[in-house]
Computed example of a mutant assay.
Amino acid sequence: MIKVPMTVEGANALREELDRLKKVDRPRIVQAIAEAREHGDLKENAEYHAAREQQGFCEGRIQEIEGKLASAQVIDISQIPVGDKVIFGTTVVIINVDTDEAVTYKIVGDDEANVKVNKISINSPIARGLIGKEVGDVAVIRTPGGEVEYEIDEVKFI
């Protein structure tokens, strides 16, 4: 089985979602199905069909999360010796060499990635170009618009 890297925060978020789905959402949906059944004819009962559809989505998500957690390799970077090298789980401040624009990214697993909150996947082109580099190094990242050079300004282990 292929292990998928995941941060401690990402694993905890998935566990919380799984717990909510099993203890809150699933019982609520079962109750909605029971109430809809009481209304009679199931063929033309929109409430029943909607509740069954919700049940399908909920059960599918539960299975998906359980699968992700089973194949996850949770990496706690607080247990890794501190250095200036960019590794999985680190937060890195990079500066575009051409524009002097600074950007901060946290390198996380695929399921945790969200560019809106500056979390990028370990498999993204930017992360792949940064992994293994140290503070002061210049990483050349190939983008659709051409190659962009970023200088690594800071590496944080938070």
Rank of each mutant, 00 (worst) to 15 (best):
Met6Trp: 04
Met6Lys: 10
Val8Gln: 13
Glu9Asn: 15
Arg15Asn: 09
Glu16Gly: 01
Glu17Gly: 07
Arg20Gly: 13
Leu21Ser: 08
Lys23Gln: 15
Lys23Asn: 15
Val30Met: 09
Gln31Trp: 02
Ala32Arg: 03
Glu35Thr: 01
Ala36His: 01
Gly40Tyr: 02
Gly40Lys: 04
Glu44Cys: 00
Glu44Thr: 13
Glu44Gln: 08
Asn45Phe: 02
Asn45Asp: 01
Ala46His: 10
Ala46Ser: 14
Tyr48Val: 00
Tyr48His: 03
His49Gln: 15
His49Gly: 07
Ala50Gln: 08
Gln54Glu: 15
Gly56Cys: 09
Glu64Gln: 11
Ile65Met: 06
Leu69Gly: 06
Ala70Met: 06
Ala70His: 12
Ser71Asp: 10
Ala72Pro: 05
Val74Ala: 06
Ile77Trp: 04
Ile77Tyr: 00
Gln79Phe: 03
Ile80His: 04
Pro81Leu: 00
Asp84Ile: 12
Lys85Val: 12
Val86Pro: 15
Val86Arg: 04
Phe88Pro: 07
Phe88His: 13
Gly89Phe: 04
Thr91Met: 13
Val92Pro: 15
Val93Tyr: 03
Ile94Thr: 12
Ile95Asn: 14
Asn96Ser: 09
Glu101Trp: 00
Glu101Thr: 09
Ala102Trp: 12
Tyr105His: 12
Lys106Leu: 07
Val108Gly: 06
Asp110His: 10
Asp111His: 15
Asn114Lys: 09
Val115Tyr: 08
Val115Gly: 06
Val117Ala: 03
Val117Met: 06
Asn118Gly: 04
Lys119Arg: 11
Lys119Gly: 14
Lys119Tyr: 05
Ser121Cys: 05
Ser124Gly: 05
Ile126His: 09
Arg128Leu: 15
Gly129Tyr: 05
Gly132Asp: 08
Lys133Leu: 13
Glu134Gln: 08
Val135Cys: 03
Asp137Ala: 14
Asp137Lys: 04
Val138Ser: 15
Ala139Glu: 03
Ala139His: 02
Thr143Ala: 03
Pro144Lys: 10
Gly145Leu: 12
Glu147Leu: 10
Glu147Phe: 04
Glu147Gly: 13
Glu147Ala: 11
Val148Phe: 01
Tyr150Arg: 03
Tyr150Trp: 07
Glu151Gln: 15
